[in-house]
């Protein structure tokens, strides 16, 4: 696993792993997020309220998960421009459950200066809750 950052596309290798990222999925974090974006719905901010909606507990908003994914990419490549994050939500990311965010480079287009990254959010059981790809443009 890489501990370093990259500055240019020439430093990127196919199959290279981005530094793993442990997102803050606490109820306090989703409450802060909900307050700032105006989403104070119980499904994101209150376990009991979420259960009443048929969920297993409060869940992390999808756009917040995408923010985590973007943060991982920028920790790895601070000068990168994220062109796209394309996610498939297979199962909820549960609040107050530890998750791990991983990324790995699966395509490099040196002509365009872009890399494609497989991105996943995995829970403690190793289940992929969210997966997808991101495209980032790096300086040449």
């Amino acid at each position: 696993m890489a501990d370093t950052t990259v500055k240019t596309i020439a430093e990127v290798e196919f199959g290279g792993e981005l530094p793993t990222f442990a997102p803050d999925t606490s109820i306090e974090a989703t409450r802060r997020f909900g307050k700032h974006v105006g989403w104070n719905t119980p499904r994101f901010t209150d376990h009991e309220g979420a259960r009443k909606e048929g969920l297993p507990g409060a869940i992390v908003p999808g756009v917040m998960s995408q923010g985590f994914l973007g943060a991982m990419i920028h920790r790895w490549a601070p000068d990168a421009e994220i062109v796209a994050i394309d996610t498939v939500f297979r199962a909820p990311v549960q609040v107050d459950h530890p998750h791990t965010i991983t990324g790995v480079v699966t395509d490099i287009d040196e002509d365009e200066g872009t890399v494609e990254i497989d991105i996943t959010i995995t829970n403690e059981a190793g289940e992929n809750r969210v997966f997808g790809t991101a495209t980032a443009k790096l300086p040449t």
């Binding site: 196919f14 199959g15 394309d86 498939v88 699966t106 395509d107 494609e116 497989d118 997966f131 997808g132 790809t133």
Partner: peptide, 17 residues
């Protein structure tokens, strides 16, 4: 519709990893 992998990248991944 929900696939995000190019076949050539599958091949490259299998051999690289």
């Amino acid at each position: 519709d929900d696939g995000r992998a190019k076949v050539q990248n599958y091949c490259q991944w299998i051999r690289t990893r």
